[in-house]
């Protein structure tokens, strides 16, 4: 094989960046769903991704179920964990403040991580990819088929969520809660129930992220924290609470990391992404697509 041309190198960086970025975007979307209803950041969001991957390993590899069954099974198991998280950790808080909810999710994330270590041990696990491991060559760059799946699932998640929020009563109720919880409860929306739904929904999206990324990156019990941090950054870049912003932010962070690692320095690649985050926040404090109004939040 000869020297790789700069053009195909660039293409390769972009493909890699978009793939990783899609996962960050999924985590960020999960953050947003819960944030919009509760105004708290759910630190256990990364654990949903981890659980998605490991539960899928259980159904797909240990029980050898076909993808068609194991996929919905995994998503429902992780959704159940999301519901439990709300029931056990969030709802019982007396006089919840944003900060106490955040700390509660941190406590829960410790518990989930510890439990995952107990169940699966400390070793990484692999999932067979959805459609083979033979890379597709495109203009000198190699594309893993799984990358296309990752992108496809992100698109699917975005479409389904858009329909959900625009066309269904429940989706509209969730949006109402995001705008004004007390007014929503006055018009008969059960805000506590909506919080529950938001946890279930973002757990499901986290699980999908874990399911599609595990064939690429493997999965082990303590991967969640790193993904949460990346998703958190993606969220802030795009504007907290803003769904197109989450997708944009995630892909942007992925691209900066990959291009930074390839073209400048791999040791400092995370620094580039984070500097971009700081720069965006300092120039436009509400994120790229966020409105100033959303950034007003309750007292801690």
């Amino acid at each position: 094989m000869e020297h790789m041309t700069l053009a195909s190198q660039l293409l390769q960086y972009i493909i890699t960046g978009v793939t990783i970025g899609s996962i960050y975007a999924m985590v960020a979307i999960g953050f947003n769903i819960i944030y919009n209803v509760t105004e708290a950041i759910n630190f256990a969001q990364g654990e949903f991704v981890m659980l998605g991957g490991l539960v899928m390993v259980f159904f797909r590899v240990t029980l050898k179920l076909p993808v068609l069954f194991s996929l919905p099974l995994t998503i429902s198991v992780v959704m159940a964990v999301g519901i439990l998280l709300d029931r056990i950790a969030i709802r019982p808080i007396r006089k919840p403040t944003v900060l106490s909810m955040v700390i509660a999710t941190i406590g829960a994330s410790f518990f989930i991580r510890g439990a995952a270590m107990f169940i699966w041990g400390k070793n990484p696990f692999d999932l067979p990819p959805f459609s083979g491991r033979n890379p597709i060559t495109f203009l000198g760059a190699a594309i893993q088929p799984q990358s296309l799946w990752v992108l496809g699932f992100l698109v699917a998640v975005v479409i389904v969520l858009t329909i959900f929020f625009d066309r269904t009563i429940m989706g509209k109720a969730l949006r109402a809660c995001a705008v004004n919880p007390s007014a929503s409860s006055l018009v008969g929306i059960n805000v506590k129930y909506m919080i529950l739904i938001s946890f279930a929904l973002s757990a499901a999206i986290g699980a999908i992220g874990g399911i599609v990324i595990t064939p690429i990156s493997l999965m082990e019990y303590d991967r969640g924290a790193m993904l949460a941090v990346k998703g958190f950054s993606a969220c802030a870049v795009g504007g907290i609470g803003n769904f197109p912003g989450a997708v944009l932010g995630g892909i942007l962070i992925g691209l900066i990391e990959s291009l930074g690692a390839g073209l400048i320095s791999s040791g400092y690649k995370d620094v580039f992404a984070l500097l971009a985050l700081l720069l965006i926040l300092f120039v436009k404090p509400s994120g790229l697509l966020g409105s100033a109004e959303v950034s007003k939040i309750r007292k801690f």
């Binding site: 094989m1 000869e2 020297h3 790789m4 700069l6 190198q9 390769q12 960086y13 493909i15 890699t16 960046g17 793939t19 990783i20 996962i23 990324i213 690429i216 990156s217 303590d222 991967r223 924290a225 790193m226 990391e257 990959s258 291009l259 690692a261 390839g262 073209l263 791999s266 040791g267 690649k269 995370d270």
Partner: peptide
């Protein structure tokens, strides 16, 4: 002389750069 983090999901970028150096 390329590096990556212990929890990184993908090292394609680093390897692509190396591929260019053959």
């Amino acid at each position: 002389d390329e590096k990556y983090g212990p929890k990184d999901t993908d090292m394609t970028a680093q390897l692509t750069k190396i591929k260019g150096m053959s």
